[in-house]
């Protein structure tokens, strides 16, 4: 293959799906050392989903948009600063990757849910975790109860729930879900200029619900639901390792 063949040609040839334009622009902006709040605000304000995410993060105590104290993108960024926008920029590709993975491999429609609308996760659960390091540094935590984990493994593997026991098969299926979503996420970060490498994922049962925050970074907590399946995704990231 000639070296002159460009990535775009290859992406077309291989049938890759590009991330939404606004997400790509926002991530590229975050990768720049001279991040301008006004530019970030314009990009977020121009996209309904990004705007909704930012306002949700900026109003952690509100159950409903009608209860928002901070109701504009500018006010949210003024109050919470660029770190908030950075989390939105990075959480969005992660969220898109998870929804797409579940839709494609499990044929299930996964939707982001309000944390208050799902049962509280407590006690023993399945924890899948992977770190990434480089120009962006952070951790992705995927947590779910054992029932959700079994349903996911059953759907991915095409094996009836009753024939699955909690163990290597379930852990491997959930680990692969994490691997796919973070692999897609990492590709988006790298393409935006935030080169990073994924570390070895860890999947195990746990009772620990704490998500330690990466030094200098923030945490975005997301909940996703599809029928009986509930997934809790925490992203903690510090993108300021830009050289």
């Amino acid at each position: 293959m000639k070296e002159t063949v460009q990535y775009k040609d290859l992406a077309t040839r291989y049938g890759f799906t590009a991330p939404p334009e606004c997400v790509a622009r926002l991530t590229q902006l975050v990768a720049q050392s001279d991040l301008e709040l006004e530019k970030v605000a314009r990009i977020i304000a121009s996209d309904k989903e990004l705007r909704a995410r930012l306002l949700r993060v900026a109003n952690p105590k509100a159950d409903d948009p009608s209860e928002y104290v901070i109701d504009t993108v500018e006010a949210a960024l003024m109050r919470h600063g660029v770190a908030c926008a950075v989390l939105i920029a990075m959480g969005t590709p992660l969220s898109i990757a998870l929804v797409r993975t579940v839709q494609t491999m499990l044929s299930m429609k996964l939707e982001q849910a309000d944390r208050r609308s799902v049962p509280v996760l407590e006690g023993e659960h399945l924890l899948a975790r992977v770190g990434f390091a480089g120009k962006a540094t952070g951790q992705v935590y995927l947590r779910m109860d054992m029932d959700s984990a079994t349903l996911i493994a059953s759907a991915i593997l095409g094996i009836p729930e009753a024939e699955l026991t909690h163990g290597p098969e379930v852990n491997d299926a959930v680990g692969e879900l994490l691997n796919i979503m973070t692999g897609n996420f990492k590709s988006n970060l790298c393409d935006a200029g935030l080169d990073c490498r994924l570390q070895t994922p860890d999947v195990r049962t746990s009772e620990d619900l704490e998500t330690p925050m990466v030094a200098g970074g923030g945490v975005e907590r997301m909940v996703f639901r599809s029928g009986r399946i509930v997934m809790h995704v925490d992203l903690t990231v510090n993108p300021w390792n830009v050289n």
Binding site: E3, A11, Y14, N179, S187, N188, C190
Partner: peptide, 14 residues
């Protein structure tokens, strides 16, 4: 693979 970043794809295509 889940990784389709530009650098990976170009390196592999080569």
């Amino acid at each position: 693979t889940a990784e389709a970043g530009r650098d990976n794809v170009l390196q592999i295509a080569k």
